[in-house]
């Protein structure tokens, strides 16, 4: 009998739960919630800002941050599912079209610089620097199945197998690296270990003497004893990635600006406006803390100015571009 009662009670509770669940669906909360999604590269910065902002507002405004990649983030953004989109590359033509069709206008705000870092195993004693041409030989689609030994790239290097690690095809990092090195976005050989999880790449390179890979600077900065960064020669001599070489524009073509995109409609909400202002005013120290390279103070003021004056749109015209120095970025932003 007791068992029966338990079962009946269970069924009743379930029915009530279900019933009320359905009736409560339309009563969506009208409270203050800011939805952010997008690039995993920008995630640490946005997360830091969101954390501090929520502390500062004592929980009056809620902020959620997801990771679905730059491309995935834009898809949601142009469907009005998010207020802000994290992006590790400028918005592309087809994403601009999608947003336009949905009537979404946006502010493009650069928040930091990242240096894509080419990395080898610390036991690798034959490499100090590589030219972009050598990188292209390795990563071009034609190399697939053919360039499999170090000596094929440069005869001075040993006749050892070449093991490659790189970013997954959905990431802005992959888009940018292929554009910068191969010359065409998303054009890459396919026979390498690809992962969206950069730690898989760190582990792979750290355990294999013959490995070569690329990913964001922050992962190198956290694991300097497990990895060795390679200086990249973009035509003006080899340059090591560092905050300094990114700031003075010599680490090219692998340094890149990263952005947040804010929907104009969302920005009309006071809490989103407040969050963006907080973001741009506090970005510099937080960016440094999570091992990215902050923009000069002028860049943040300029972005804030655009935002407050309602200047929407992108300064990149939907083209994949590489080698934009901080200086160039400032000039372009000034013209918006």
């Amino acid at each position: 009998m007791q068992m029966k009662r338990t079962l009946v009670a269970l069924a009743t509770v379930t029915a009530v739960l279900g019933g009320i669940a359905i009736t409560s669906v339309p009563a969506m909360a009208e409270e203050k919630l800011i939805k952010i999604d997008g690039s995993s590269t920008v995630f640490p910065i946005t997360e830091a800002v969101a954390e501090e902002f929520q502390k500062a507002r004592k929980g009056a405004v809620k902020v959620t941050v997801g990771i679905s990649g730059t491309g995935g983030g834009f898809k949601k953004f142009c469907r009005s599912e998010t207020d802000i989109s994290d992006a590790s590359r400028p918005i592309l033509k087809k994403e601009m079209d999608a947003c336009k069709q949905a009537g979404i206008e946006y502010y493009e705000l650069p928040v930091a610089y990242d240096a894509l870092t080419v990395m080898v195993n610390p036991k690798n004693d034959w490499i100090k620097s590589m030219t972009v041409a050598e990188l292209k030989t390795i990563w071009a689609p034609e190399a697939q199945g053919k360039i499999t030994r170090w000596s094929q790239v440069n005869p001075k290097w040993p006749d050892a197998p070449l093991k490659l690690y790189g970013a997954g095809a959905d990431s802005g990092t992959f888009d940018y690296f292929t554009e910068a090195v191969v010359g065409k976005s998303k054009s890459s050989r396919g026979d390498f270990t690809a992962s969206e999880d950069d730690n898989v790449l760190v582990q792979g390179i750290a355990n294999d003497k013959n490995a070569l890979g690329y990913f964001g600077f922050a992962y190198y900065a956290e694991n300097p004893d497990k990895l060795k960064a390679v200086a990249v020669d973009g035509g003006k001599g080899p340059v090591m990635p560092s905050a300094q070489t990114v700031e003075n524009g010599t680490y090219q073509p692998l340094s890149r600006p990263i952005f947040i995109y804010v929907s104009k409609k969302a920005a009309a909400k006071p809490e989103v406006k407040e969050f963006i202002e907080y973001y741009l005013k506090n970005a510099a120290p937080l960016v440094k803390e999570v091992k990215y390279i902050p923009l000069p103070a002028k860049a943040y003021t300029m972005a804030l100015g655009h935002f407050q004056k309602g200047k929407t749109g992108t300064v990149f015209g939907g083209e994949a571009e590489v080698g934009i120095k901080i200086e160039d970025l400032l000039k372009r932003e000034a013209k918006l």
Partner: peptide
């Protein structure tokens, strides 16, 4: 599309006002 960074809790299932039970957390 579950989220990665979320630093707040869903709405409490029990409230101080009538009807004392809230199902807003279902949509959080």
């Amino acid at each position: 599309g579950a989220l990665t960074f979320i630093a707040f809790l869903p709405h409490a299932p029990v409230t101080t006002e009538a009807p004392y039970v809230s199902f807003q957390w279902l949509m959080d």
